[in-house]
């Protein structure tokens, strides 16, 4: 059974989700719940830190697609950071870097949000 955990930390109006393990069709609902919770709290400036994510399938990619329109409509965004080469390749293969901002580390992602405040 796939292991997956999400740890959340809030700093001002920015929330960081640290995701760890394997993000597939089995674990995607847990990740979806985490983002849904943020949206319900009207926290729409979200950084997802992939540092400890070992694997992602299209079910994981689909979670981002499910929320981005709504979040951007509220002047928010989902920015991504700390992706391993293995995980980045999957995003790149499908053209996700054209739609999402993917940066090297969490600090940079937070900085980009602060620049657009």
């Amino acid at each position: 059974m796939s292991d997956f955990t999400v740890r959340r930390k809030d700093a001002g109006d920015i929330s960081v989700l640290n995701i760890e393990g394997y993000l597939d069709a089995h674990t995607a609902p847990a990740f979806e719940d985490s983002i849904k919770q943020l949206v319900e709290e009207n926290r729409n400036r979200i950084v997802v830190n992939f540092d400890k994510l070992s694997y992602i399938s299209s079910a994981g990619l689909g979670v981002f697609m499910g929320f981005i329109e709504d979040i951007r409509a509220k002047n928010g965004d989902i920015k991504m950071s700390n992706m391993s080469e293995k995980v980045y390749k999957i995003f790149d293969l499908l053209g996700f870097p054209n739609l999402y901002e993917i940066v090297s580390d969490e600090t940079e992602a937070i900085k980009k949000f602060k620049e657009t405040k």
Binding site: S58, G62, V63, M65, G66, E69, L93, L94, G95
Partner: peptide, 22 residues
């Protein structure tokens, strides 16, 4: 067509697409 896919903010339906690429 990934442009159309992104423009419609679709989710899901990428499985076979990925298999064909990979």
């Amino acid at each position: 067509d990934m442009d159309t896919y992104f423009n419609k903010f679709r989710r899901g339906g990428l499985g076979i697409h990925l298999i064909k690429i990979l």
